[in-house]
């Protein structure tokens, strides 16, 4: 048993173990997601976060030690944002044909997401760092985390709010838009992409290919729009 303790104390000091654990937890989360028929409720990120949080708790590992390994994954958020240029590039010809409706829906959707979230939370007594963390939650995670850091929010809290927003949108979009009687797949997809980024976009592709393409467009455009709108919206409440 002393051997095991020695191995543990060696491995738990380096980045390798927690980097491996991060990938393993996500692989398990992704397997659950596929087994559940890609239901938005079985979100692989939430599953991975719960598994890792439990593991850190059981092994009494501080987050700072965990992050020494996980930082290699975290770093890729920046390059991933650059890579989002590709889906945007691919939909540019279709975007040109729907430019005015898309721009109008982008501004209205992005501003509604930020202002209404801040207004509801403010009315219920939320202030300071937690309030700031809410403002960019409709943008895709790498962008939202970057914005949150810039406006005095908590990047880790924003990461979880981004995921919750994505799951909420993926679940309610279809029943909500059916109830409203909206049949334009472009409008439906675009609004879901603006509001619920990648998780909403993945859901939109399951429902309708046009909705999926326009959701991807909405997600990419809102990555840019949120950078401008979130700080403005937050300034209304400070």
């Amino acid at each position: 048993m002393t051997d095991f303790a020695e191995i543990w104390s060696y491995l738990s000091q380096g980045p390798l173990m927690w980097l491996t654990a991060t990938l393993a937890a996500y692989a398990i989360g992704d397997a659950c997601f596929r087994a559940a028929g890609k239901s938005p409720l079985a979100n692989p990120v939430l599953i991975a976060v719960v598994l890792l949080a439990g593991l850190l708790h059981l092994t009494a590992t501080p987050y700072a030690v965990y992050f020494e390994g996980a930082q290699f994954v975290h770093f890729l958020l920046g390059p991933a944002t650059i890579a989002l240029a590709l889906p945007l590039f691919d939909v540019l010809p279709r975007l040109r044909r729907s430019l005015l409706p898309a721009l109008a829906a982008l501004i209205v959707g992005s501003a509604t997401a930020a202002v209404s979230a801040l207004a509801i939370a403010y009315a219920l007594g939320v202030r300071g760092e937690v309030l700031a963390s809410l403002a960019p939650k409709s943008a895709t995670a790498p962008v939202a985390i970057g914005i949150s850091q810039g406006i005095g929010g908590s990047p880790t809290l924003t990461a979880v709010l981004v995921i919750l927003t994505g799951i909420t949108g993926a679940i309610i979009a279809t029943p909500l838009l059916n109830l409203m009687g909206l049949r334009d797949w472009r409008a439906r997809g675009f609004a879901v992409g603006v509001t619920s980024h990648g998780i909403g976009t993945a859901r939109a592709f399951q429902v309708n290919p046009t909705a999926g393409a326009f959701a991807g467009m909405g997600m990419a455009l809102n990555a840019i729009a949120t950078a401008v709108i979130a700080p403005l919206a937050l300034s209304l409440f400070q």
Partner: peptide, 24 residues
Amino acid sequence: ILLAVVGSTILAIAAGAVTFAVVA
């Protein structure tokens, strides 16, 4: 925070989709 997330998501999807459809 949960109310803010759910409420704002419903409002933003509805507002964005209606705006797109009307302007189109």
